[in-house]
Nucleic acid binder design. Structure first.
Lengths: 255, 255
DNA sequence: CTCATAAAGTGAATCATATTCATAATTTAG
DNA sequence: CTAAATTATGAATATGATTCACTTTATGAG
């Protein structure tokens, strides 16, 4: 008999019921005023029942986060356009993600909040893993696009690598803020600010530029000197490096 | 006698004392566990005294936010490099901001949190204004760089506008996430997601591209169709538009 | 059909904290 | 020195998360 299956389905349904109710309450009132009792009551359940599904408020927030991330990923995956010119692939994802944001503005607020809090929080490892897993496909999409590299046609007649692509990837990577947070912050429970992660994970390494030396801590005086140096030399250092990379055959290009 | 002045200074000192203590507690324990009583006690004051300076926990968070923003702004202003080539100006700010993030990782977590919550919150208008004011110089820096436009030398021999700059501005604008939040979300108390704001405020308008029509809500089917359309036509539409703009004399260029 | 057991549900009680307020201590001005 | 103003206090109150001893419901064997 399918008793076990039915049970599991009912469990998932009840859980979804709570998730939707909580999300609705957040949309209307904000995160600060989200009350566990209200969520339970709006589903015609007692407080205790809610706690049988989610061990804490934080747990509930993480669950909403993972739930929403799945929808976001689906939207982006649909828009991936692998057969488009290479420079458009990245843009397609960016636009799709932007449009998703239009329709689900709460997702971003919530994700920001949860990622911020979960670093110190006490949510179960199971929930953390769920959030990370739900976001991973976004990272995979971006990684694939970036590692696919540049079509031969994108190098101009003088053989120069189009810097526009590098900068576009940079923009894309920053747009992937939340994904990076999920993998970098939640996963390793290692607090590193978004900029560092973005640079390390998304842009610098992928473009063959090693920014690592710039990322060590230093004092105010050194900061000024370093910024000066970077500003005067960055582009000159940058162009040859990417040009050299572009001149080599790139595995997986124009899939 | 300077009694009034001394009073004000002492008030500011006490306030700073609380701010530092709170920030320290946040760094160690996280935002969720920030306790008003602990902050007060760690400064050898009673709870009630803390409430004479900050009307609520949210108020305290906003105050920390504004305090930190001032330091961030100072770092960026120092790095503005107005005499550098136009394409490097933007980059200088980005790098400076990144380096600031390295040294003050808590600032970003806190800012994110506060911006997220303050939308619905009940903090005093005075505190909101303080946060907005503290961030405004960042907006001014970026605006100036963007509106200064492109040096004549940045248009290539065929008169094409370098798309790299447009994309770079895009990246920069996304990097200015928090500034946009402060002005757009807190100020107008109008919740619009970061992507929309970024596009409207930073990129699209400034580059003479009108994305507005893309930003209305629509359903899933339309999403797919739209993304398709955008991906296939965006770059073709984009290039002529910016080329036309670049062909015109630009006020304030190359200062 | 009936009972034993397990699973799901309950909500009053507990606990942790933000916030308030009546009162006390301190400072200032005359 | 004294009244008024300012600042500080911390016990009392309020809110809302979380727990738990108990009730109700569902399941499955005999």
């Amino acid at each position: 008999m399918g008793t076990r299956e039915r049970r599991l389905r009912e469990l998932a349904e009840r859980e979804q019921l709570f998730l939707d109710a909580a999300r609705e309450q957040i949309s209307g009132q904000g995160l600060l005023t989200l009350q566990m009792a209200k969520v339970a009551r709006s589903c015609d359940y007692a407080t205790g029942t809610l706690y049988q599904h989610f061990s804490s408020k934080e747990d509930l927030l993480l669950a909403i986060c993972a739930d929403q991330a799945e929808k976001r990923v689906a939207t982006m995956a649909r828009a991936a356009h692998w057969d488009a010119p290479s420079r458009d692939r990245m843009f397609a994802l960016m636009v799709a993600d932007m449009l998703f944001a239009e329709r689900h503005p709460d997702h971003y607020r919530l994700t920001q909040y949860v990622f911020t809090e979960a670093v110190w929080g006490s949510a179960s490892q199971r929930r953390r893993d769920a959030v990370i897993e739900a976001h991973r496909p976004i990272g995979d999409l971006v990684s694939r696009i970036v590692s696919d590299g540049i079509d031969a046609g994108d190098v101009d007649s003088r053989g120069r690598y189009p810097l526009e692509l590098a900068l576009g990837q940079y923009a894309m990577t920053i747009g992937m803020h939340h994904m990076v947070h999920a993998e970098g912050v939640l996963d390793k429970n290692d607090i590193r600010d978004p900029y560092r992660l973005l640079l390390c994970h998304g842009t610098a390494q992928l473009n063959g530029l090693n920014w690592q030396p710039l990322l060590d801590p230093f004092d105010d005086v050194a900061l000024d000197a370093l910024v000066s140096r970077i500003c005067s030399t960055l582009f000159d250092d940058f162009r040859p490096a990417v040009a050299a990379r572009a001149a080599q055959p790139i595995e997986g290009a124009s899939q």
